Simulated assay, not measured.
Amino acid sequence: MSLLGPAEVRELAHKLGIRPTKQLGQNFVHDPNTVRRIVRAADLAPDDIVLEVGPGLGSLTLALLEQGVEVRAVEIDPVLAGALPDTVARFAPEHAGRLTVIAGDALRAKVPAGPTALVANLPYNVAVPVVLHLLAAVPTLRHGLVMVQKEVADRLTAGPGSRVYGVPSAKLAWYATSRQAGKVPPSVFWPVPNVDSGLVAFTRREPLDGDREATFAVVDAAFAQRRKMLRGALAGWAGGPDAAERILRAAGVDPGARGEQLAVEDFTRIASQRRAGGAPG
């Protein structure tokens, strides 16, 4: 089989009448070495069923199929979704039977049961919601590797105390442990973006003992007023600063701390204390 290079990417785009749009965050990878590097970093097992979001013209799809795994690709652009099977049949006919294309938005489309790995070049504007949604909606996902804007990679993988630690970091930590797995230069994309990209690898963790929605409400409140101490930042959520302080102390958290200092386990304990009656409401 062969992978897509710059000439093939432009030829396919021209044939399909595709002009990459900023609205859909379309930046197509045209470098075979990069997509093979992404697949290696994904550390796929032979029995993995890969969920790919935003396959575009098929560069990463072909590299995934080259590994021998089954691929389920979710594509929001109907023209690209319709063309992907033909592209695979042309460049990798021996692997065409292992591709399933799902036309639709990854935030709404019904994904068939069973995917075990998420591997995707995600549009920058929806990367965080897509990752968090799929981890919630597809419980069979065990691990993954996503390419996102480098700034987003920094935020997703940040730990407590980091300057860029925030809502994405804490919410991803609810589901998984994560790490950065390398940078990707703008030159491997068409059109060339004005930012570097980063690879984020994650592995699903054992579920935390708590309620996800309640925990996420605390995370949102804590970072909505990031510079405030938790006693003040959580006042609206808790029913007042005094109620927030009682809940925080019951959870073993300093009311004078800030959200950026807490791990997801701390947010979970805070949420649990309120549900257990640590304060009215």
Results as ranks from 00 to 15, higher is better:
residue 264 V to P: 01
residue 167 V to A: 15
residue 130 V to D: 09
residue 106 A to V: 10
residue 25 G to V: 07
residue 120 A to W: 05
residue 263 A to K: 07
residue 114 G to H: 03
residue 171 K to G: 06
residue 202 F to D: 07
residue 142 R to Y: 00
residue 37 R to I: 02
residue 22 K to Q: 09
residue 252 G to D: 13
residue 43 D to A: 13
residue 135 L to F: 01
residue 191 P to I: 12
residue 84 L to N: 08
residue 179 R to L: 06
residue 246 R to S: 12
residue 240 G to W: 14
residue 175 Y to A: 13
residue 238 A to H: 06
residue 57 L to F: 04
residue 226 R to T: 10
residue 74 V to Q: 09
residue 191 P to R: 09
residue 121 N to G: 11
residue 258 R to M: 03
residue 262 L to T: 03
residue 104 G to P: 00
residue 178 S to R: 05
residue 60 L to M: 10
residue 63 A to W: 14
residue 218 V to L: 07
residue 154 D to R: 12
residue 173 A to S: 10
residue 55 P to N: 00
residue 73 A to F: 05
residue 224 A to M: 15
residue 152 V to N: 12
residue 256 G to M: 04
residue 232 G to C: 05
residue 169 S to E: 11
residue 164 V to Y: 05
residue 164 V to M: 03
residue 136 A to K: 14
residue 19 R to D: 10
residue 245 E to R: 08
residue 77 D to A: 15
residue 25 G to P: 00
residue 229 M to E: 15
residue 38 I to R: 01
residue 174 W to L: 05
residue 94 E to M: 15
residue 243 A to S: 14
residue 102 I to D: 12
residue 121 N to T: 05
residue 219 V to C: 05
residue 6 P to K: 08
residue 33 N to E: 14
residue 145 L to S: 13
residue 173 A to P: 02
residue 56 G to I: 00
